[in-house]
Design a protein around this nucleic acid. Structure first.
Lengths: 216, 216
DNA sequence: CAGCATCCGCTTTGATACTG
DNA sequence: CAGTATCAAAGCGGATGCTG
């Protein structure tokens, strides 16, 4: 990206992360921690492979991404965020929150990967009763399973499965998100096709975090 | 901008605000509230005029910017953010914070407009003793004067002058910002060329706000 | 197969000139 | 003042080819 050449923090940041696809690549790495080129490509439907390679080079040069050549017998390259890269989480959080209203309904032309909901869920949800024993909620709403786990009061999410989750939700992402953020009643979601298994009290334990009111 | 077509809040947001120049236009409108096409162009050195016109059209269509035809005798068009547009302030705040390290030093090729510092100062500073009578700090570090004012505990900034400020700072933006954010001692800044007039105790009243620690 | 690089047509951007 | 018009250059998207 050509620099704006403006002595301004916003403009300087956009010089680095303002390119097309760049922040979506960071999104992938925030969710997956360490992953291969192919994982990134699969999580970024629509990207041209040469662009992904270009962006990874630029991000590495900017100190946001580090590439690690896994030793044999794995023999593959792994990409991960540096600490400077992980500092982009609040940036992506805010942009994603601003874009929240746009995901109220889903267009048929939109692609979806289930792990995309992991980041907003982790950032939005909190454990209402952190003293009680940890719980896990298993989600099935796309290509890969996602787990929500409480641990030390924090809510974590990751790609994967767990043998005995307290709750399992299966269905369209709109319904899964709606139920977890409290925007859709469980009964309404089940009527709309969501499958629910487990203890419904557990579901109430994980609730959207109250946002700080903006100043001014 | 071509849509990413991803069912993801971040991607949907970037469909709208991810174009080159778009967030810088929002920056201008956050600082200036209502302004003319020419004001925007002056605040965006480097932008091609057709691009500014294009972006304003797109932003209007997206419900972020509203255009208002001022009645005669003014007879000019004024642009301002809608409420949805003002909701981008936290987005720009976070991106600007992330870009903060990049403005540690200034390249000679960088352009500068003094009002660019108004937004980060407003977002970073707080009034340590909000009960005391309001104060004003006058800044001269570029093309236009900027005022910092305390009011009801909040810190506000605007383009303009005030007759009798408690403090006046004149000099390079690095020095002005450094002193206000506490990164440079006043004595060091004066040695480096900053002119200071007024009550140095007043300067201590306005301090950087403590950021909430990130979760996780 | 993973991890790119190359090529090509198309779109976006940038610089400048011009207009009501 | 507030844009539109024009055109060259850069960037992007899609397909394909190469290499270990």
């Amino acid at each position: 990206m050509r620099s704006y050449r403006q002595y301004c923090g916003l403009a300087k940041a956009l010089d680095v992360i303002g390119d097309r696809w760049t922040l979506l690549i960071v999104r992938e790495l925030l969710i997956r921690d360490r992953c291969r080129y192919t994982d990134l490509r699969d999580g970024l439907p629509g990207i041209a492979t040469n662009l992904l390679a270009d962006r990874l080079r630029e991000l590495e040069r900017a100190g946001i991404v580090a590439r690690e050549d896994a030793p044999p017998p794995i023999a593959t390259t792994l990409y991960q965020l540096t600490s400077r890269g992980r500092e982009l989480e609040p940036v992506i959080d805010q942009i994603g929150r601003w874009g929240g209203p746009f995901v109220a309904e889903r267009s048929k032309k939109d692609t979806f990967r289930s792990h995309w909901i992991a980041l907003p869920l982790k950032l939005h949800l909190k454990d209402r009763t952190p003293r009680r024993p940890p719980i896990a909620i298993q989600l099935h709403c796309g290509d890969e399973p996602v787990v929500i786990e409480t641990r030390d009061g924090a809510v974590r999410t990751r790609i994967g499965s767990i043998p005995d989750p307290e709750v399992t939700l299966t269905g369209a992402p709109q319904l899964v998100i709606g139920v977890l953020t409290g925007k859709i009643e469980l009964a309404a979601a089940r009527a709309a096709g969501l499958k629910f298994e487990g203890d419904r009290e557990v579901l109430r334990r994980v609730v959207p975090e109250r946002r700080r009111e903006p100043r001014d």
